[in-house]
C-alpha cells in the first residue's frame, strides 16, 4: 500500500522533471535533438514491426500446431530460396536506411558552425569546471539560447564523459586529448549534465547544470559573475570558490569523513602525515596542500587530490584559505 502510494507520488513528480518528454525521449532543447529523435523513432517503428511479427507468428504457430491428440506434423519444404532471399534483402535495405539517417545526424552534431562560442571544459574526479573566454570559471555551464556553443573537453585525471540528455549530446572527456562537441540550445531553462564514463567513488554525483540564458542576458550574467567574488568578504568568496571548484566532492566542513579529510576544526591544530611526522596547519601548509597536494599527504588518506596549481589564481587560493580559517575559528 504504502510502497505503491510512494511509487505513484514519485511517478507524478518525475513527470514534472522530464518536462515535455514523450514516453521514451526526454524533453528536447537543442537544434540537433529533433534529428536524433527522428532516427530513434524511425528505428523504433521498424523494430516494433518486426518484434510484433515474430511474436505473432510464434504465437500463431504454437496455437495452430500445438501437439494434441489427432494432430501430427505435416510435411513442408526445409528451405525456400525466394523466401530466404526476401527476408535477407528487406532487412538489409532497412538497416542501410537506419545507418544513413544516423550518419547524417552524427555529422550534423560533429561539425560546429563557424561562429560558435567557445567554452573550455575541465573534468576531474568528481566535478566539472567551465571556463569562459574572459577567464571566469564556474561549476555550471551557462550558455546563451540561440547561439552555437562549442566545448573543448579535457580531463585532469581519468576518463569522464559529458552528457546532456536534453541536448542528445555526449562526448568522452579523455586525459591527454582535446575532444570537442557543440550544440545550440533552443529553450532557456536548466538542464542536467551527467558524467557517463565510470570514474570511481563520486561518479554518480558528478553532475552539473546547463543554464540556458534568454538571448541577450548571457553577457550581463558573465560580466557580473566574473566580478562577483571581489565584491564579497574574503571568507565568503572562499566559501563560494570552495563549492564551485569541486572541493566539496572530497572534503566536508562538518567533520564527516569523505575521500579527503574534513576541514572542521583543523586550523591551528597539528595534522599527522603519512610518513609519521606532524605539521601545524597554517596558511603556508594549506597553500602547499592545494598547490602541491602530494608533497604532504595526510595520514590515513590516499594521494588522490589533483593539483590546483595554475587552476586557482593566487587571490583565489587566499580566499579559500580565509574560508578554511573561518571554519577553525568557530571551534572552541
Amino acid at each position: 500500500m504504502n510502497w505503491l502510494g510512494r511509487l505513484a507520488a514519485v511517478a507524478a513528480e518525475g513527470a514534472e522533471d522530464i518536462r515535455g518528454g514523450g514516453f521514451w525521449m526526454p524533453q528536447s532543447a537543442s537544434t540537433t535533438a529533433p534529428e536524433v529523435d527522428f532516427v530513434f523513432y524511425f528505428i523504433l517503428a521498424i523494430s516494433a514491426f518486426f518484434f510484433v511479427l515474430i511474436v505473432a507468428l510464434t504465437a500463431l504457430f504454437v496455437v495452430r500446431y500445438r501437439a494434441r491428440p489427432g494432430h501430427s506434423e505435416q510435411d513442408s519444404p526445409t528451405h525456400n530460396t525466394a523466401l530466404e532471399l526476401t527476408w535477407s534483402i528487406i532487412p538489409s535495405i532497412l538497416v542501410l536506411m537506419m545507418f544513413w539517417f544516423g550518419f547524417k545526424a552524427y555529422m550534423d552534431q560533429y561539425n560546429p558552425p563557424a561562429n560558435a562560442y567557445e567554452i573550455l571544459v575541465e573534468a576531474q574526479k568528481w566535478n566539472w569546471s567551465f571556463q569562459y573566454p574572459n577567464g571566469y570559471i564556474d561549476k555550471d555551464l551557462h550558455v546563451p539560447a540561440g547561439t552555437p556553443v562549442r566545448l573543448v573537453l579535457t580531463s585532469q585525471d581519468v576518463i569522464h564523459s559529458f552528457f546532456v540528455p536534453a541536448f542528445r549530446v555526449k562526448k568522452d572527456v579523455v586525459p591527454g586529448r582535446y575532444n570537442k562537441v557543440w550544440f545550440e540550445a533552443t529553450q532557456p531553462g536548466s538542464y542536467v549534465v551527467f558524467c557517463t564514463e565510470y570514474c570511481g567513488t563520486g561518479h554518480s554525483d558528478m553532475l552539473a547544470h546547463v543554464i540556458v540564458h534568454p538571448p541577450g542576458e548571457f553577457e550581463a550574467w558573465l560580466e557580473k559573475a566574473a566580478n562577483f567574488l571581489d565584491t564579497l568578504p574574503p571568507a565568503e568568496a572562499g566559501k563560494l570558490l570552495y563549492e564551485q571548484r569541486g572541493c566539496t566532492q572530497c572534503h566536508s566542513v562538518d567533520g564527516s569523513p569523505r575521500v579527503g579529510p574534513t576541514f572542521k576544526g583543523i586550523w591551528g591544530h597539528e595534522v599527522k602525515l603519512r610518513d609519521g611526522s606532524t605539521v601545524p596547519v597554517d596558511e603556508d601548509y594549506l597553500r602547499e596542500s592545494i598547490v602541491d597536494p602530494q608533497a604532504k599527504v595526510v595520514d590515513g588518506f590516499d594521494p588522490v587530490m589533483p593539483t590546483y596549481a595554475g587552476r586557482l589564481k593566487d587571490k583565489e587560493i587566499t580566499y579559500i584559505i580565509e574560508y578554511l580559517k573561518s571554519l577553525g575559528e568557530e571551534q572552541p
Binding site: 523494430s47 518484434f51 555526449k170
Partner: peptide
Amino acid sequence: LSFLWLFGIGGLTGLFLGNLGVDLHLHD
C-alpha cells in the same frame, strides 16, 4: 520461445546502439 522473443528485443535494440546519431544519446 522466450529466447526468440527476448533475444529479438536484445538484437533489435542493438540497431539503436549501432546507429551513429542515436548512440550519442544512448551510449553508457
